[in-house]
């Protein structure tokens, strides 16, 4: 593609092939990353965003790199690759994890939801809409992880998972700003959109709780 094909507008997403290619492949070819020299690759079947994938991977491949490099699902970001920033947050079997600290092979049979599985530009998830409304992002690099975490945090509060800021950990957590701030703290935003992210989550959570 020609780079200048990327046009950003509010009316519609006037975008070239780069973004659409990233969400199109169901049975990806692994040739791109060179199977001819690969050491003992191993088979892996898992579901990502409600689609089944049967792939072969180098055992060293993290879930994050499987998504970003092998499957070209680049919405999930690599910020630190060491579990220190949260940009790689995805939801596996209903729970958020850092996909950088998990081998792809550890997810045989798992169901994984990434940012691409939550919504698309013309069909946004309510949390994605709320992030736009509250300007809950700037550079956008931590944003997919923040949104995946937000979705999971609302569920964790509903399920009663305790947190560090509860005075009584035996009690049911409330959907409060303090709770949300604490639970979102595994997602760093260096642009400093935190207070807007909080507003976005409270907006959605307040509407649904």
């Amino acid at each position: 593609m020609k780079p200048s094909d990327i046009k950003v507008s509010r009316r519609t997403v006037l975008i070239g092939t780069a973004a659409t290619a990233a969400i199109a492949s169901v049975r990806p070819s692994l040739g791109a990353t060179g199977d001819e020299v690969a050491a003992a690759r191993m088979p892996l079947s898992l579901s990502i965003n409600r689609r089944s994938y049967d792939v072969e991977v180098d055992p060293r491949t993290t879930l994050l790199d499987l998504l970003r490099e092998n499957l070209k699902l680049t919405g999930t970001k690599k910020g630190c690759d060491h579990g220190q920033c949260g940009a790689c947050t995805v939801i596996v079997n209903g729970r958020r994890i850092n996909s950088c600290l998990s081998l792809a092979l550890m997810h045989q049979g798992d169901e994984c939801t990434t940012i691409e599985g939550l919504g698309e530009p013309d069909q946004l998830h309510e949390v994605q809409s709320a992030f736009i409304k509250h300007d809950a992002f700037q550079c956008g690099y931590c944003t997919p992880g923040q949104i995946c975490s937000s979705v999971a945090v609302m569920d964790e509060i509903k399920r009663g998972v305790p947190s560090h800021v509860m005075a009584d950990v035996a009690a049911q957590p409330g959907f409060t700003e303090t709770e949300v701030r604490e639970r979102m703290s595994g997602n760093i935003c260096r642009c400093g959109a935190y207070s807007n992210i909080l507003d976005a989550i409270m907006d959605v959570g307040g509407a649904t709780s």
Binding site: G86, T89, R96
Partner: peptide
């Protein structure tokens, strides 16, 4: 740690 890490 964080919620993500504690889940794992």
């Amino acid at each position: 740690a964080s919620g993500q890490i504690r889940n794992k």
